[in-house]
Each structure stands twice: as C-alpha cells, then as structure tokens.
Amino acid sequence: MTSFKAEFWRQFYLYKRYLFNYVSDFFLLVLMFMAIFWGGSLVGGGVLGTSLNALVVGYVLWSLIQNTISQMGMTVMNQAKNGILEQQYLMPISSKRLFLNKSIVNIIVSLVQAVLILLVIMIFTNHWIKIPVVLAVPFLLALVVTVGLGYLIVSLILRFKRIGSTLVIFQYIYLGVLLVNFENYSGLTKIFSLFLPICPMVSWMRLAINNHSYSMPFYLAGSVFNAALWLIIGILVFNLTDKYVKRNGTLSLY
C-alpha cells in the first residue's frame, strides 16, 4: 500500500507541476472527436441518434486506453532513461507489484479524464446519452483488459527500450478498430472480435446504450473471456521479459 500511495502522489504532483501540458492533451482529444463528428456531418449529412452513441462510446473507451498506454509507456521510458527504473527494482516489492501499482494509478487518472471527455463531448454535440446500470459490468471488465495491456507495454519497453513510434501507430490503428460495429456482424467476424482487446465490451455497451436487443450470456461470457485472455497474456509476457532483462543485465536504457 505504501508503494501505491507513493505512485499516486507522484502522479498527482506531476499533473500539478505540468498542468498546462495535461490540459492541452485533454482538449486535443476533445478536438479530435469534434473533427470526426463534424467530418461525418459534412460527408454523411449528420451523425445522429444511435450512430452518435456508438461513436461516443468507442471514442471515449479509446481515450481511456490511449491515456493508460501512453502514460505508462512514457513514464517507464523516462524512468529507464534517467536511472529511476533501476532504483525501483531495488525496492522491497516484486516488479510485478511495482508495475501493477503504476497501471492502477494510470487507470484511475485516465478514468477521470475519460469521464470529463464524455461530459464535454455531450455538451458540445448537445447529445446526452442515458447510461444503463448494466454498463458497469463491461466497463469494469474493460479496465481489467487495460491492466493486461499495461503489462504488455512495460514488457515491450523493458525489452526494446524505445517504442514511442510503435505506441503512436497502435493508438490510431486501434481507434479505427474500436469504431467498427462488430455487433452488427455475424459468424466468424463476430467471434473474431472476442479476441481483440475490449472489443466485446464496446459492442455490449453500444447495444445497451442504444436499447437494442442482444444476447446477454454471449456478451457476458465474451467479455469475461476477453478480460481473462489479455490479463493472462500481459502477465505471462511480462514475467518472461522481466526474467530476460534481469538475466542479461539490460534493465537500463543504455
């Protein structure tokens, strides 16, 4: 708990010290959504009703993933560069617990930012979404997936050190993936979406928000499977990478 509190206050003071930069990032995410919204209005005659609900849900969840991954990635890369990461490995806690604390703090911060983005988007578009209580289940499962993705990002940084371009490419490719309405497909395409991080949760949330009929057992089982799959993958890859860098003495950036 002490290490978690330390990580939380470290993040808090960083936001306090560099508030202007974080506020700029926040408004950039909002402006990106408005560009998509206005672009769709000009080309398609208006993004209204259920289409806008799907767009908002997909984008807000992407912003949650993007913030979690980018914050985790940049933090670990900077700490590897200035030697702090090596010092943290000397702490009397496991490296798995160390990065779990970082991941949870990043998720909390990103969650607050995602909620604020949702409110600002609804104000700008004048389109208010009624959020059913059942959405708490897929949303919590989506947070579990982000923990697994956090472990994967840390593993890539520990192994390859500088992956800034890879993070940027992943973020914008995955934005397109999350905006695809897999719930409207059938057969293999729908089954394939269960293996993509957070996709079944996004489909479930879109269907619930739009009051469409859907198979609760299918999306519940698919979301639990997706959360367990990516959490296990993240932990396994991290354990292998962690042992590799310790064995080869390649923890530092250089």
Rank of each mutant, 00 (worst) to 15 (best):
G187K: 00
V147R: 00
S165H: 09
V168W: 15
G150C: 03
S203L: 02
L149E: 11
T189R: 05
T189V: 13
L143V: 08
V168S: 15
L196R: 10
W204C: 04
L156T: 04
G187V: 04
K190N: 01
L156Y: 11
F182K: 03
A142D: 09
I153K: 05
V154S: 01
A208T: 07
V177G: 07
V154C: 05
F192D: 04
R206N: 10
I163F: 08
S186K: 02
L194S: 12
L207H: 02
W204E: 09
V154G: 05
L141C: 09
Q171P: 07
F192R: 04
L178Q: 08
L156P: 03
A208W: 01
L152I: 13
V180K: 09
L179H: 11
L188F: 12
L140T: 09
F160D: 09
Y172I: 07
I153P: 04
R159V: 11
T166R: 09
F170G: 08
M201L: 02
F192P: 04
I198S: 09
Y174M: 13
Y185Q: 10
S193F: 00
I173R: 00
R159K: 15
V202H: 01
V168G: 14
I153D: 06
P200T: 06
C199T: 15
V168H: 14
S193N: 01
S155D: 11
L156D: 01
L196D: 08
V202A: 10
Y151N: 02
V147T: 02
L140M: 10
R206S: 06
S203C: 04
M201P: 10
V202W: 00
I209G: 08
L141I: 05
L140F: 13
L156V: 11
F192N: 03
I169M: 13
T146V: 09
V180A: 10
L175C: 06
L188R: 08
V145T: 11
G164T: 09
I198H: 09
A208I: 02
T189G: 13
V145L: 08
I173E: 03
L196P: 06
G176Y: 03
T166M: 15
Y174Q: 07
N184F: 00
T189F: 12
Q171S: 15
G148F: 11
L158W: 12
L167S: 08
M201A: 13
R159L: 15
K161W: 07
L149H: 05
F160C: 10
Y151G: 01
F192M: 10
L143H: 00
T166P: 06
I157T: 01
E183H: 12
E183R: 02
P197G: 05
L158K: 03
